[in-house]
Amino acid sequence: MTNGCPEYHYVAYIDESGDDGLKAVKPVSNPGASEWLILSAVVIRAENQREVPNWVNSIKSEFRNHQRPDIHFSGLNPAKRQRACEIMANLDARYFIVASNKKNMQGYRNPAADKIPSKNWFYCWMTRLLLERVTKFVYDKSISQYREPKKLRIEYSARGGLSYPQMSAYYEWMRLKKHNPYLPWGHISWDVMHFDLMKIYPHHDREGLQLADVVASAFFKACDKHDTGQCDPTFAKILSPRMARDPDTRSGQCSGFGVKLMPSLEKAKLDPDQAEIFNFYGYPKQWWCPKASND
């Protein structure tokens, strides 16, 4: 225990690009919310926490005339974006993204939303999909290295309307719920999670969240064509060496695990330029949790 919190051996930094608006969604409606919501996770071993500020400083040191104290992918020119991703492609970390193409969800309301103790049900559901993959990765690594599950600290980037009580209440609700008739869940490895290890911080306060911003925004730029100009998959492709695979080997499967698209590639009806990044990472083939359940 450290300061009343359980000991942990891994850390996940979670950020997003796009928004979770569903009332009006581009390109179905214009104006409207972003067509995409992309959540990312940067996962490291806890012993590397002290190195994260050095990693971010090494990226900033490559930039001329960088006035900001932090890194925001959207504020970087293409050359700086490329250099940031090149450096991140060599860090001792694993990256995950879940990408939701929202145009088929315009006006949708989750029929179970009133039963979920959180106002941000869509964001929470997206983090659920992300953590199915992150916790499996951490669980497998724990068993391999320590022969028992080890805890994961989760740090979220503060965003509009997100609160720790809402987020923790949602996960507690999902953990205790034995059956959900609306959505076929995968499997969260609850053995590696603890609610006292879930934290929310401003983006500029945590260098790890700035790394997660780069990952989320690189993939947003790869498939968005309504808010950031034409699609450019260059940056997301550069991150390939560190995108998570199952198993965690060079030949492991990335599509559906480290890179997860919702809905399926066929149902998303993406334009060819939007689909390029998902094809690059192995779609239409995709991984699915071998322990699928309704927990």
Rank of each mutant, 00 (worst) to 15 (best):
N104Y: 08
I38V: 13
F96A: 01
S29K: 03
L183N: 10
A99G: 03
V11S: 12
D70I: 03
P290A: 04
F96W: 01
W173I: 01
E266L: 07
A292T: 06
P53N: 07
M262L: 15
L22Q: 09
E51F: 10
Y156H: 12
A33S: 15
T228F: 10
L130E: 01
F257H: 07
I277Q: 01
A158W: 07
Y139I: 10
K102E: 04
D15S: 12
E148A: 14
G32I: 00
I14Y: 00
D271G: 10
P69N: 08
K103G: 03
F235C: 08
T2R: 07
V215W: 06
L265S: 03
Q253L: 09
E266C: 02
P53K: 05
R83L: 15
G208K: 00
A216H: 08
Y164I: 14
D227P: 01
K225C: 15
A169K: 05
E16R: 01
W36E: 06
D15I: 00
Q286T: 12
V56Q: 04
G186V: 08
R109C: 10
C124M: 15
D227Q: 15
S264F: 07
E266D: 11
I71Y: 03
A216P: 09
I143Q: 09
K269V: 13
W287Y: 11
R250V: 11
F278S: 09
F195K: 11
V259L: 07
H226F: 14
K177L: 12
P233F: 02
Y123K: 04
R175E: 12
P111D: 04
D92H: 05
P284W: 00
Q166G: 14
W55T: 10
F195L: 03
Q106D: 06
V214M: 12
N48I: 00
R83P: 04
W190E: 02
G161E: 02
I238S: 07
F137R: 09
W190S: 01
A112D: 11
F96N: 01
G75D: 13
K80Y: 09
Y201E: 13
A113F: 02
R45M: 08
D196R: 14
L37H: 04
D19M: 02
P27N: 05
R128H: 15
I200P: 13
P247H: 06
L176R: 14
A93D: 00
H72M: 08
L176P: 04
F257A: 02
E47D: 14
P31Q: 03
K237Y: 03
L37S: 05
C223S: 14
Y139H: 13
N120S: 15
R250W: 10
A212I: 06
P290Y: 03
R133Y: 00
V52M: 00
S74T: 14
A41W: 01
L22P: 04
G186E: 12
K60C: 05
M105D: 10
D248F: 05
I188G: 06
H187G: 01
R175T: 02
D70Y: 14
P53E: 12
S58K: 08
L239E: 04
P184G: 14
V259K: 02
A99F: 08
R109K: 11
Y123C: 07
C124Y: 10
S34R: 08
P233I: 12
